[in-house]
């Protein structure tokens, strides 16, 4: 395969997948530690009505109104979940289940309206994403990776994810101490005057931003997988938050690359002339890495635990 074809068709998709995985994977650490893993699930589902609403209000498929709509829907859902939890006196999971299924259902029905407006958005796209459609026709050789004017012609979703990744990293660095405290010991954080509620809200806002930015490229299922699997894998490998963050970032980013390569070229290796869903494959790879960690992790893996019990 020639370099220019790789750069034009595969490279932008790989970048999209791994950048989306990275920003979600990093934030996922705090969701996993705070037992809010399923918040990522809920938010990535309610992105759908937000996007449709953004489209219906502005009538364009520009990404800005859609992203604003999605962010708005994410915040509404967080508020509603809290409301249902308190009024219904039910566990947070049940409150989430009520809110995100209802909002998703509303999004599905709203979609019918977009069909009437002559623009095709669909649920499959929202779930599966559209990773393979990213192209970078301007590229003609490896040297282009160093030429800013050609780099600028990368798909706008890639550039957006670069910005979001920088924002996520800046957020984690700026609030590192606070995030650590509210993740491990929220009560102690409160006594120190760090409002776990405020930091928690900020975290959810960042989760929404990452979910919305990644959603468009990779679909909501990969977003959920990336919020959870890399962080869960890293959590099995270390007790230190800083190490966990770095490990989860590595796992997320490399799942993006390996998953895409398997999806695009894997079937050809075993003799089939086809390619499979890249977003799906990335999540599967992340899942397999997590299974390996669950079994073989040095201290917290099943084998190590069994040996410890026997000793």
């Amino acid at each position: 395969m020639s370099a220019d074809i790789f750069l034009q068709f595969d490279f932008p998709s790989i970048l999209l997948g791994s950048l989306a995985a990275l920003c979600c994977g990093l934030l996922g650490n705090f969701l996993v530690l705070r037992r809010q893993s399923l918040m990522g699930d809920a938010i990535s589902h309610v992105v759908l009505p937000g996007i449709v609403l953004g489209f219906l209000i502005t009538g364009t498929v520009d990404s800005l109104p859609m992203m604003l709509g999605a962010g708005f829907a994410a915040l509404v859902s967080v508020g509603l979940i809290e409301l249902v939890r308190r009024l219904g006196k039910v566990e947070p999971g049940a409150a989430m289940g009520v809110v995100f299924t209802s909002m998703f259902a509303a999004g599905v029905l709203l979609l019918e309206q977009t069909g009437a407006a002559g623009v095709h958005l669909d649920v499959e796209h929202a779930l599966y994403g559209n990773l393979e459609s990213a192209i970078w026709l301007e590229a003609s050789g490896w040297g282009d990776l160093l030429r800013p004017e050609i780099l600028a012609a990368l798909p706008v979703s890639v550039l957006r994810l670069v910005v979001v990744n920088m924002a996520v990293i800046a957020f984690i660095l700026a609030f590192y101490k606070e995030l650590k405290l509210v993740s491990f010991d929220p009560l102690f954080a409160d006594t120190l005057g760090i409002s776990s509620r405020f930091v928690g809200t900020l975290l959810i806002v960042m989760v929404a931003v990452a979910a919305v930015a990644a959603f468009d490229a990779v679909g909501s299922i990969l977003v959920i997988a990336m919020f959870i699997c890399p962080a869960a894998t890293a959590r099995l490998l270390t007790d230190r938050l800083s190490t966990q963050l770095i490990l989860s970032g590595i796992v997320a980013f490399s799942s993006g690359i390996v998953g895409y390569v398997f999806a695009a070229f894997g079937p050809a290796w075993i003799g089939y002339d086809m390619s499979v869903s890249a977003a799906g494959m990335i999540a599967v790879v992340a899942g397999i890495i997590q299974v390996v960690a669950m079994i073989f992790a040095p201290r917290y893996g099943v084998i190590a635990r069994r040996r410890l019990q026997r000793a």
Partner: peptide, 23 residues
């Protein structure tokens, strides 16, 4: 069998199984 909590277990299963279905 692991130190992961139920919400993480649910999230892992739902996303990776669904992703396998997509593939």
């Amino acid at each position: 069998n692991t130190r992961l909590t139920e919400d993480t277990a649910i999230g892992t299963v739902l996303s990776t199984f669904f992703a396998l279905g997509m593939v």
